[in-house]
Design a protein around this nucleic acid. Structure first.
Lengths: 142, 142
DNA sequence: CTAGCTGCAAAACTTTTGCATCACA
DNA sequence: TGTGATGCAAAAGTTTTGCAGCTAG
């Protein structure tokens, strides 16, 4: 939460109750990958006693958080995009997505280091420093 | 075109002028990755003198073609999905997508063989036999 | 104070669907 | 001729935007 405040201030964005509440939800659900709609619902449930929030605000906030590196966005084939908090102590990772059950697993980023280097060498294409989505079948669904 | 007819007949689907026209467009644009809307527009241009076609038909046809393996679908982050004809003589490949200009390049599939094997070994996750999307910056946009 | 945020509602956009009609086999 | 395919229009579903009012700094 302090990190949020620091990053927002650094970029000259305001620390609003809505932004704090959204970050709290993301933190409470860390490890999961939430749709904007999920986040909104959780906020509405909690929020009966506190503040009101609009779905558009959640969308706008998720875009903002992504831009400043607080969350990473995972666009799903046709489904709504999902977000997860970027945890800095955690190793960077890619996503393994099961085509059968939509379940997510993670693999360490280092596994793609060689691939990135080859792509740079052969195609002069600089692979972005963002999680890759790798589709397939998890051990249960094979 | 003969291949289309063969595959459709094998699956008990009908060979309609619309399906043939769509396949023709895909063939004429082979090497490119077309949005459904692009295909529709091209058909409307050409079609003034021939037949009418509806956008819904293009959507339905692309889904059908994908199911029977005639085209491969490339879901783009927020943008409309793009399709390309599956050319059997051509080597299987992955896509490099430039985050700046949306341009697509291709890399040979073999470059990810090691990665796939490691993922299977470490996570018992079977990577699907489909093109991977790798995001980054092309040589012009870096 | 005032620029940046927010909520609401409406719009934008891609994709899907219902249905009456059409046409391939 | 009968069933699958089509065109049209409307619906669905996610995300964006316009705008008037609110609020953090």
């Amino acid at each position: 939460m302090n990190h949020l405040k620091k990053v927002l201030r650094e970029h000259n964005f305001r620390i609003t109750p809505q932004r704090q509440a959204i970050l709290q939800v993301l933190y409470d659900c860390r490890g999961h990958h939430l749709e904007t709609e999920n986040i909104y619902e959780l906020l509405v449930e909690k929020g009966t006693k506190t503040k009101k929030i609009g779905l558009a605000t959640v969308y706008r906030t998720m875009e903002l958080f992504q831009n400043i590196g607080l969350v990473s966005r995972l666009s799903m084939e046709n489904l709504p995009a999902r977000y997860e908090l970027v945890i800095h102590e955690k190793l960077r990772h890619h996503h393994l997505i099961c085509l059968q059950c939509d379940q997510l697993q993670e693999i360490e980023e280092r596994l793609t280091d060689d691939l990135k280097m080859q792509i740079l060498k052969e195609k002069q294409f600089q692979v972005a420093d963002q999680p890759m989505k790798i589709y397939g079948y998890c051990s249960k669904c094979q």
